[in-house]
Design a protein around this nucleic acid. Structure first.
Lengths: 164, 164
DNA sequence: CAGCATTATGTTATATTATAACATAACAGA
DNA sequence: TCTGTTATGTTATAATATAACATAATGCTG
């Protein structure tokens, strides 16, 4: 289940379908885990999924407020639920959230984020985790969790820059 | 200059001297770079160095306020200077700061932080960076910078746990 | 299907982390 | 010593996140 190749989602895919599939998968996952994928959680998940880019909690809040009143805890609770269910990840260096691309496979992942267009790709590379584990083990450190966020230029933006 | 081994600073070292040496090194580094290691910057650097643990900006602020008035920008400006000089690092997942152990060698580093005692160790492991570079290169991603923070149990706390 | 415990959401207030904008002071070089 | 530059002081506020308590929805159990 480990993905070793970065996949940046481009603008020209069938987003309607992509979105629908993601929600179906999320629903099924919650069902399996005996958790409720409520309307609010679905809405927040959709917003995180929508742009295939990191989104801030208050950006989500603004969207919710278009439908009526909403306050920060509403957003943060939904985000906490989605984080715990493994449906989204938090990007610590951006204080932002991204949708998980393989929620069925519980993992922490490594994130590659474009500083130009903010596109992101998620990886669960054994190459990287093994390197970390090895360094840790050599010193007697017991790894519990990790935060790995790589910033740079996605292939598209890199080419644009080179041709400029 | 790459350190491949984690070193957690234990409580039983000559802290007076450790502190003095660190400040001397910081002074020299600034001198070399034509930057001013002012009293305020020295004070903030000392506070970050002091406990060999991540420290928050407002924790530093409280210390400064013991000497008289002080406001957040004072702290953040000093921290920004120290970050840019490579004398400290920021731990994104903790919103906290740690002293750099090898400021003469400009690097981003990987951080191993104990969830029990908060001791930290800094690494600049080519094993890890190479793994990341390789994953990136395969996909055409150009790495600019990274955030790597590993949480877990330091050797001491791990042993304590096992014997409990 | 009524009652009840549990889980989820609403609401208000506030904590925590960080920056903007402008004023003053200290310093370094001419 | 003057002057431009760099550093710090000060006030206000932005951005991110949580605490505490009230209400509502859900689903289990009898």
């Amino acid at each position: 289940m480990t993905s070793e190749r970065l996949h940046f989602i481009s603008g020209d895919h069938d987003h309607q379908r992509c979105m629908k599939d993601a929600i179906t998968r999320a629903e099924e996952l919650c069902l399996q885990q005996g958790q409720r994928f409520t309307a609010l959680r679905r809405r927040v998940f959709s917003l995180v999924w929508r742009q295939h880019k990191p989104i801030g909690a208050y950006e989500i809040l603004e969207e919710l407020q278009r439908d009526g009143r909403a306050a920060p805890p509403t957003v943060y609770r939904a985000l906490d639920f989605l984080l715990e269910s493994g449906l989204i990840h938090r990007i610590a260096s951006l204080n932002a959230y991204v949708a998980c691309l393989q929620p069925e496979h519980r993992h922490e992942g490594q994130f590659f984020i474009c500083t130009s267009c903010r596109a992101f790709a998620e990886l669960d590379s054994s190459l990287i985790t093994t390197a970390i584990e090895q360094n840790a083990r050599e010193s007697g450190f017991e790894v519990q969790r990790h935060t790995i966020e790589i910033m740079g230029l996605c292939p598209q933006c890199r080419l644009l820059k080179e041709n400029a």
